[in-house]
Amino acid sequence: MKLIPTALAILLAGSFSAFAHDVPAEIAKAPPAGAFKAVSSLVKLPDFLPGMGQLFVDPASLPAGPFLAYDHDGKLVSTIYMLPVKDLNPDKSFNDLAAPGGNVDHVDVYYNAGHPGVEEPHVHVVLWHVSAADEALVAK
């Protein structure tokens, strides 16, 4: 699918400068400071989503995010962007997407048909701040 490489290229073009910094203290542990709210307090979703973790987002940044994802111990494990499929076209770009969680170990990109909070089809771009093996921290 051409959409996935395009979304990844858009994300990475604006994010390389963010790869080299550490996790800021205000978001290192859940709940993060500032305007971030638990996604479960905004829409009908469980507090912890297997495979993703406990999600927080600044409601003003919806639908794209960033969403901050935490493990069961409240440690930040990933930053997730949810980019609407309808916006992945030549007339729209997602510039300067940040990796607020610091260093990125690897990136996953996958399609989602929609869910509470982001009902329209979109692409999840997951910036993992932990190793692939440590993704198990949010598996269940």
Rank of each mutant, 00 (worst) to 15 (best):
A136S: 14
Y111E: 07
V118P: 03
G53C: 02
L45F: 06
A13N: 15
D108M: 10
A98S: 13
A18R: 12
L137W: 07
A18M: 13
D22E: 14
F36N: 05
G51T: 06
T79G: 07
S61N: 13
H72Y: 01
V123M: 04
N89E: 00
L8G: 07
S78G: 00
A38H: 11
N95D: 14
V43E: 13
D91M: 11
I4W: 08
A33S: 13
L127K: 06
D73Y: 06
P59I: 00
L62V: 05
P59D: 03
H21C: 03
G14D: 01
M82F: 03
N112T: 08
D58W: 08
I10G: 10
F48P: 04
L127P: 02
D108R: 11
G65A: 04
H106Y: 14
P84V: 00
K86R: 13
P46D: 06
D96L: 15
H124N: 14
F16K: 07
V43L: 10
A60S: 13
P84M: 01
V130S: 11
A28D: 09
G74C: 06
E120I: 06
P46V: 04
A38M: 04
D91H: 11
L55W: 05
T79P: 08
P24Y: 07
H21R: 10
Y110N: 10
K75H: 15
S41W: 01
V104M: 05
L68Y: 07
D22I: 01
K2L: 14
P121T: 00
L12N: 13
V104E: 06
A25C: 05
Y70K: 04
V57E: 07
Y111V: 08
